[in-house]
């Protein structure tokens, strides 16, 4: 029998925080994926909520294209607040 499909596991540590990727599990279906995720990644109260997503359904950017993809931000320093010189006397800006 070949491997069950792979699922990526995301845990919300506590209310107010986003779900964060923690690892993956193999499972035949979503229900078992959740159970496996619970046993594998939350044995010590690491979370209050779990997401599982079929790994095959995740679309990722290509690391080889990272340069082209993210570079344009580097020459747009005016997007950052520190780009602007404001006199110290002017408060709360």
């Amino acid at each position: 029998m070949s491997d069950w499909p792979l699922w990526e596991v995301f845990v919300r540590t506590k209310g107010g925080l986003a779900h964060r990727h923690v690892g993956s599990v193999h499972a035949p279906d979503a229900e078992l994926a959740l159970r496996h995720a619970r046993d594998t990644y939350t044995r010590r109260m690491e979370g209050v909520s779990l997401w599982v997503v079929r790994s095959a359904d995740i679309v990722a950017s290509d690391p080889d294209q990272a340069g082209e993809l993210f570079e344009p931000a580097a020459d747009k320093v005016y997007r950052h607040p520190t780009f602007y010189d404001i006199p110290d006397e002017v408060k709360h800006i």
């Binding site: 029998m1 069950w4 499972a27 035949p28 279906d29 078992l32």
Partner: peptide, 15 residues
């Protein structure tokens, strides 16, 4: 314990 894995797979196939 192979039967456990097989049962889970069969359950999913049926679903």
């Amino acid at each position: 314990n192979a039967w456990v894995r097989e049962a889970a797979a069969a359950h999913e196939a049926k679903r």
